[in-house]
Amino acid sequence: MDFGLVAVVVGFLLILIGIWGILTQKNIVKIVIGFSIFDTGLHAIMVGIGYLKGRTAPILDSAVSPADALTSIVDPVPQALVLTAIVIGLGVTALMLAYVVRLYDYRKSLDISSYEDLKW
């Protein structure tokens, strides 16, 4: 069983669930939750692509010497990208939630359909 393929498939399903949440939910907080699930799916796909079967983590110690790193570690580049992407994800989620607080102060409602100032 290839864990990398499983991670890619689960990641795609999480993205679909997240988009479903973003597009169908009326509550703004639920929409933000949809975005955060979308994020998790994206990270799972990227880590899954970097996984190579039967290899170990990209940390060189007594178990993996620098000489045989080439044949025994997984791809470290997607992991480095996902590491920073998770932190940015928290920042973006916090920003969206700050907008939610602001919108709630403005009209005392969490329903997205009560904000129709820009609707035509």
């Binding site: 864990f3 990398g4 933000v32 998790t40 983590a57 990209p58 998770i86 939630l97």
Partner: peptide
């Protein structure tokens, strides 16, 4: 799941930030 994908760094970040801090902010 990231631990099974040999990504301990990502697993630590996701556990501390994804399930800790963002839940608190929510």
């Amino acid at each position: 799941g990231y631990l099974f994908l040999s990504a301990p760094d990502v697993a630590m970040t996701e556990a501390a930030i994804g399930s800790g801090l963002s839940t608190i902010i929510f």
